[in-house]
Design a protein around this nucleic acid. Structure first.
Lengths: 204, 204
DNA sequence: ACCTGTATTGCCCTAAGATCCAATTGAACC
DNA sequence: GGTTCAATTGGATCTTAGGGCAATACAGGT
């Protein structure tokens, strides 16, 4: 999934710009998908391969800024490279503070854009790697029963079985059984590993 | 140390700007220290209290951008708010990518600047908290003897005393002694806590 | 009624970790 | 030469953790 060919999404209302950007991006061996509006992009299917978004700031209908907000709201955080012909400093600063990876001005320097794209793709690969790992761990957590989850969260704070048993009002033996299942389901070979897994999914 | 009154450093070559910014910042109860050049700021003592830097981009001698680089190189990462009368988009983007917290244009809107300053101060407080914690943990690690450190790093991977003893060519008994000292010196009440400490200082 | 998953507990036994006491060796330092 | 510290090991004891086997209980679904 991560070794697929990266895709660059281009959203611009001018057909000539789309064509020229697509040609440039294809020339370095990357896949391209173009959209003539933010709406059109929002209605497309999220990509499974590493990707980034090259986005015109000013467009009829939803602007590039609107799209950035919208993607942020739905939690689809793809690296965004803005390109614009009219932007001002406050606009560029706002988008950068919201997490854009770059902000280029038209006419865009080809090498600058390609560099930005490569950085963005790398960044996306990295976040996909991390997310994938978190998801895998979270799935294991989800497979725990309610009781197992309780024991889990207390175990990783360093509490002894005895204390956990007292806290949850059960016998020490029961704690041991749950604890053992937790280690199994979480695929942890040791308490140390279990703690690391817990930290990665925020069960502190 | 963190509950001291925050300090805002102002670096601008124009005296009038310094005076006006200082007056504004003082008016909301913050301390101010002004500098007429980047050099002057670099030669001052780093602050112990939460602080941020309000920095003019264009100045004779070292520019604001140069100062940002220099501070980055020496690892003094104070939140920086740029202000400028002449800046362009690429410049603002470059500084933001390098970690500036804001980039405002002259004449600066007073409320915008104060908002930016408060955000920057909060950010600095946060990084100071985190750094302080890391430093405290690192000091404990530094108090470990070489052998204890070795045992430490193996313990937090989840290895058993027996395995550690074999790996390091010592008896299991010796491992236990080192391990016990590690728990003591690291002030960890349990293996779970020890693992958390190890992760915070990057001993994975 | 029957089966499954979850939760619970008891007893027993082994392995592992924690603690306390005690001792030896070598290197560094005064 | 004496002191201090790091590293090492042994023994004895106690506490924890983990696993096996067996059993009870309850809820939901077929």
């Amino acid at each position: 999934m991560n070794d697929e060919i990266p895709v660059v999404f281009v959203v611009d209302d001018e057909k000539a710009v789309r064509k020229s950007l697509a040609r440039l991006i294809k020339s370095v061996g990357l896949n391209v998908q173009t959209f003539s509006s933010a709406r059109e992009f929002l209605e497309s299917d999220p990509s499974d391969s590493p990707s980034c978004l090259v986005l015109d700031v000013r467009m009829p209908g939803l602007s590039g800024l609107d799209l950035q907000n919208e993607l942020d709201n739905v939690g689809y955080n793809i690296p965004i490279i803005f390109i614009t012909g009219y932007g001002d400093i406050p606009m560029s600063v706002r988008t950068m503070k919201r997490g854009a990876t770059d902000f280029l001005i038209k006419p865009v320097n080809e090498q600058d854009l390609l560099d930005a794209i490569h950085r963005a793709i790398e960044k996306d690969k990295q976040t996909r790697r991390e997310r994938g790992e978190i998801r895998a761990i979270q799935q294991r957590v989800d497979s725990l029963t309610p009781r197992e989850r309780e024991v889990f969260s207390l175990v990783v704070t360093g509490m002894l079985n005895k204390q956990i048993a007292h806290d949850l009002g059960m016998s020490e033996k029961t704690v041991k059984v749950h604890r053992s299942r937790v280690m199994d389901k979480m695929q942890a070979g040791s308490l140390a590993e279990l703690v690391k897994l817990a930290l990665k999914v925020g069960i502190v």
